[in-house]
Amino acid sequence: MKRRSTFLMIVLGFGFAFFYIPILSMIVYSFNASRLATVWGGFSTKWYVSLLSNDKVIDALFLSLKIAVISATVATILGTMAGIALARFTKFRGRVLFSGLVTAPLIMPEVITGISSLIFFILMADWVGWPGARGFSTITLAHITFSMVFVTTIVQARMIQSDRAIEEAAMDLGSRPWQVMFDITLPVISPAIMSGWLLAFTISLDDVVITSFTTGPGSTTLPLLIWSKVKLGVTPDINALATLMVLTVGAGVVAAGIIMTRAERRRLADERMAFRNND
C-alpha cells in the first residue's frame, strides 16, 4: 500500500513535535546571549564557558559519575546473581518470595523507596552508629537497591532463552559448576550483563527523587544541582548543561547503533560464507 493515511501522518508529526521541539528550543536557547532564558538576545557561547568554569557543576558531575559507576557495578554483580538463580533454580524454598522481593522496587513508587531508605539510614545511625552523615555512601547504597532489579530482569530473560545444554556440555567435559559459570554462562550472557550495567548507570545518573531523600549536606549530584537551580528560575547555563548531556547521550546512542549494525552485517556475511562452504 503506497498511500499512507493523512491522519496517521499528522498524529505522527504531533508526536515527534511534542518530543523534540522542547529539546530543540532548549539547545537553541543555550546559545542565547540574554540572561533571561525566554528572551532571545543574540548568539553567544558564554554560558558554556561559565559552565565549564563553575566548580559546583564540575563537582556535581563527578559525584554523579562516581555514584553511577559504583552503584551500576555493584547492582550488576548482585542482579546477575539473582537473575541466574531465578532462571536456573526453578525450585527452592522461598523462590516466590525471593522473586517478589527482587522485583518489588520495579513497581514501588520512588517516593516510598526514598522515604524507606531514609528511615532505614536514620535507624541504622541510631543502632550501629553508621552512617554518621548521609551523602555519597547512602546515595550509592540506595541506587544499588533500586537499579539491581533492572539487571536481574534483563539477565533472567537472557538466561531463560539460552540453551541449558551448553552448560551441561561443559559439565560433561569435566568442568565443575563454578568453572562452567565462568567459562560458559557469564561469557554467553555478557551482552545482557553489559546492557544491564548501562541501564543501571543511566538510571542512577539521572535520579532525583531517591537521591534527594538519601543525600546529605555537601553531596549534590548533577540532577539535584539542576533541580535546585531551576527552582530559582531557568537560566541559560542550565540549558547549556542539558544540551551537553543530550549531545553526549545522543552520540553514545548513535555509536552503539553503528557498532551493532556493523556486527550484525558481519554476522550475516559470516553465515553466508558458512553456507557456501557447506559440504
Binding site: 540453551d163 551448553i166 551441561e168 556440555a169 561443559a170 560433561d172 567459562d183 560458559i184 554467553v188
Partner: peptide, 12 residues
C-alpha cells in the same frame, strides 16, 4: 562424554 541433540557448541 555426550554429544547433545542441539550439539551445544559453545557460541563464544
Amino acid at each position: 562424554h555426550m554429544m547433545f541433540q542441539s550439539y551445544a557448541i559453545f557460541p563464544h
